[in-house]
Computed example of a mutant assay.
Amino acid sequence: MFDLRRLRVLRAVHHHGTVTGAAEALHLTPSAVSQQIRQLARDLGVTLLEPEGRRVRLTSGAHVLLDHADALSTRWEQAVADLAHHADGETGPLRMAGYPTGVATLLAPAAARLRGSHPGMRVAVFEAEAGECFDMLLADSADLAVVVPDPTVASPEDSRFEQRVLLEEPHDLLVPAGHPLAERERVPLAETAREDWITPGGSCSHYRVIQVACAAAGFTPRIAHWATDWIGATALVGYGMGIALVPRLLPIATEHPVVRVALDGRSVPMRSILACVRSGSAQHPTVVRGLESLAEVAAKASVAGPAAAAAPEKAVAPDPVALRPDGDRRARPVPAAEG
């Protein structure tokens, strides 16, 4: 017999390519990872790792074992889920991870819903980028993750995970108040060809979204400023330094006068927001409730926009870029009386 946790360690070494990378992902020391692999090798009577320069290489026996690893892990998750139906699912823990905007607009309201409907559940939310989210799932330090798909981290066909689309999120233009486009309800992206753009760094997935969308609209964006943080990008837009492309659910709360304008036409950039769990765990009672709560929040967000998605159930926060009674759509500070 062997310990499935050691199999998880081997999978992490295979995924990250080094013992050190696996140790960081699993929150273990490199020596602990090496010890787990050596013990797994002793349990099975095969050599699993061989040195290859400063890295390690999986042996043919290790690859044979990994061919079965996903099926073994899936069956184990299914067994745990089946057993949980015979226990008290009202009090079980649910650990949810997600990227920053996903926490603000999806996970936080979903956690609030669960606290109201199942007060005995112990819900914890972690903010993490996509790679960390998948590592947390594999390390069993998270049960559910909300991510923007990144094929460099996990492909849609990755058998270690079950991935489902929560919503398809369009992108909007962010322009300075007073800009000619600010008075328009919808704007074809091609009309921004002569504008200065504010974008994140080239290694960011959002940068690739901008490049692909502008190429589809027939132009290359003229990048004037670089800002990875949304606060900095919004400030640059507010000071009239250029325009930006922002996800629809991104909350814009700033003292700088900016206007969110919907895009029109076939080149409207979209991104999928995914809910991910370990393969085989989707029927666990607490995971089911988490997925249901997220689906409810996502449905509300896709219809009502970021303010409704991010607000608590009994107190809908004012949308800083929503239409004011006088038709002014500028983002503005919310006075204390409105808070």
Score class of each variant (00 low, 15 high):
214 C>E: 03
217 A>F: 01
238 G>V: 05
189 L>I: 03
131 G>D: 08
140 D>P: 15
232 G>P: 00
183 E>N: 07
253 A>K: 06
141 S>P: 13
171 H>S: 06
260 R>L: 04
267 S>R: 12
181 L>Y: 03
183 E>V: 08
156 P>I: 10
153 V>W: 03
147 V>L: 15
133 C>D: 04
231 I>A: 02
206 H>K: 08
193 A>H: 09
233 A>E: 02
161 F>T: 06
176 P>I: 02
257 P>Y: 04
252 I>H: 00
263 L>M: 04
200 P>F: 05
256 H>P: 08
151 P>Q: 14
177 A>R: 06
212 V>Y: 14
221 P>K: 05
259 V>Q: 01
176 P>S: 15
172 D>K: 01
208 R>N: 12
219 F>P: 02
254 T>S: 08
235 A>D: 01
205 S>D: 13
220 T>H: 09
237 V>H: 01
142 A>C: 15
166 L>S: 08
221 P>N: 12
216 A>K: 14
136 M>P: 12
265 G>K: 07
208 R>W: 14
233 A>L: 06
251 P>S: 11
180 P>A: 12
152 T>I: 14
169 E>V: 07
194 R>K: 13
184 R>A: 05
191 E>V: 10
182 A>M: 10
254 T>C: 09
218 G>A: 11
175 V>L: 01
261 V>I: 06
245 L>A: 02
133 C>E: 08
243 I>M: 01
191 E>R: 09
227 A>S: 07
231 I>R: 04
201 G>H: 14
177 A>N: 13
228 T>C: 06
229 D>L: 11
146 V>L: 06
190 A>W: 09
152 T>C: 13
170 P>Y: 02
189 L>K: 00
172 D>H: 03
253 A>T: 08
235 A>C: 06
168 E>T: 02
245 L>C: 04
253 A>H: 04
220 T>M: 13
216 A>P: 12
239 Y>D: 15
235 A>Q: 00
132 E>F: 09
242 G>V: 02
188 P>G: 09
137 L>M: 11
253 A>F: 06
175 V>F: 00
257 P>M: 11
190 A>G: 12
198 I>A: 01
136 M>Q: 11
149 P>Y: 05
214 C>Q: 05
230 W>K: 00
149 P>N: 09
254 T>V: 09
211 Q>M: 15
214 C>L: 10
215 A>K: 08
